[in-house]
């Protein structure tokens, strides 16, 4: 228990978390602090490229094995199944309509790449290695949840639809293309490639992540401030409960697949996190009747801060206890 508290404590006072807290506090206090849209997008491109590239380099060093394929399948399964579970829990805990519940469920089946990046940063700080291909697992988990959510709506008599072009947009979403593309470049060029650009993608990484999380804090804080009265206690409870359920399933699957301690933690984080970039855009096209204030506030305003501050150390501690690592 002391170990968990100490891990949570040191995580809370890291520059990454404090930057997020600063952004959230500034937004809640109605400060005029803002990060320009172009800067935020630039930092997002940098982080995706760096994390994808480093993942590819790790795969080039260790090679491809059966665990990689099994991990990808586990990620796909998680993304398809988690929305069904989230939908059932939402229908019990909240009074959300089937359409709103399905839209929220899609977010919880998909992933937050920033939470993933923060978790890799925590693992690196503790000298815990993880499989580089977990980046690829993150990429395959982005889209299937959207299909599950649309199926849930259709089953409930709603009008969720996959119109022509939507699947292409989801699968060729900029963040997926960049993540997978950078992963491929890293895998092809290996350690030599990394050496050539490490001054750009390794050293400044944590500093950029801090600024990016400052922006995430500002967006989350603004969302919370503007969504007063939109969310009930049941919905907020769901946004904390669901990551823990997801992480427990991720823990089981990670052990089943045979991942290392670091890999298990990353799978737990992926299963626990909720999308706030790719899925909201898809939901606006496929489920326009769903209220964006509900799903964005839950995923970005509640689950994201929870995972960042308490979730990641909790998942790491749980994985260490269960695996004896």
């Amino acid at each position: 228990m002391n170990e968990i508290l100490s891990l949570a404590g040191s995580n809370l006072v890291s520059p990454i978390i404090l930057s997020f807290a600063l952004g959230m506090a500034a937004a809640l206090a109605r400060s005029d602090l803002t990060i320009p849209e172009a800067v935020a997008k630039g930092m997002s491109i940098y982080l995706l490229f760096a994390i994808g590239f480093k993942g590819g380099v790790a795969v080039s060093a260790h090679g491809v094995d059966a665990t990689l394929i099994m991990s990808l399948v586990a990620g796909l399964l998680l993304s398809f199944i988690m929305p069904l579970l989230a939908f059932a829990i939402l229908r019990v805990l909240t009074g959300l309509t089937a359409t709103d519940a399905a839209a929220v469920a899609a977010h919880y089946g998909s992933i937050s790449i920033v939470t993933f990046v923060a978790a890799t940063s925590v693992l690196q700080g503790r000298m815990i290695d993880a499989e580089g291909y977990m980046v690829a697992v993150a990429a395959v988990m982005e889209a299937p949840a959207i299909l599950s959510a649309l199926w849930l709506v259709a089953r409930s008599g709603g009008s969720g639809r996959i119109e022509p072009g939507l699947m292409r947009e989801i699968l060729l979403n900029g963040s997926i293309v960049l993540l997978v593309g950078a992963f491929a470049i890293g895998a092809i060029t290996g350690e030599k490639g990394l050496e050539e650009i490490s001054a750009f993608i390794v050293s400044p990484f944590k500093g950029v992540l801090c600024l990016f999380l400052l922006d995430m804090g500002l967006i989350a804080g603004r969302g919370l401030r503007q969504s007063k009265g939109v969310l009930g206690a049941g919905a907020v409870g769901f946004a904390v409960l669901m990551p823990m359920i997801g992480s427990a399933i991720g823990l089981g699957l990670g052990m089943l697949v045979g991942l290392s301690l670091g890999g298990i933690v990353l799978l737990m984080v992926l299963a626990a996190s909720a999308s706030y970039i790719a899925v909201p855009a898809a939901m606006r096209v496929a489920l326009p009747e769903a209220n964006p204030a509900i799903y964005l506030t839950l995923s970005l305003g509640v689950t994201f801060p929870f995972n960042l501050t308490l979730g990641i150390p909790l998942y790491l501690a749980a994985a260490q206890i269960v695996t004896g690592g």
Binding site: T34, I35, E37, A40, D215, L218, R222, A281, N291, A293
Partner: peptide, 12 residues
């Protein structure tokens, strides 16, 4: 649907 701002957004 409430207030919104383009500032700091990374998605579409």
């Amino acid at each position: 649907s409430g207030k919104w701002s383009r500032e700091g957004q990374v998605g579409r």
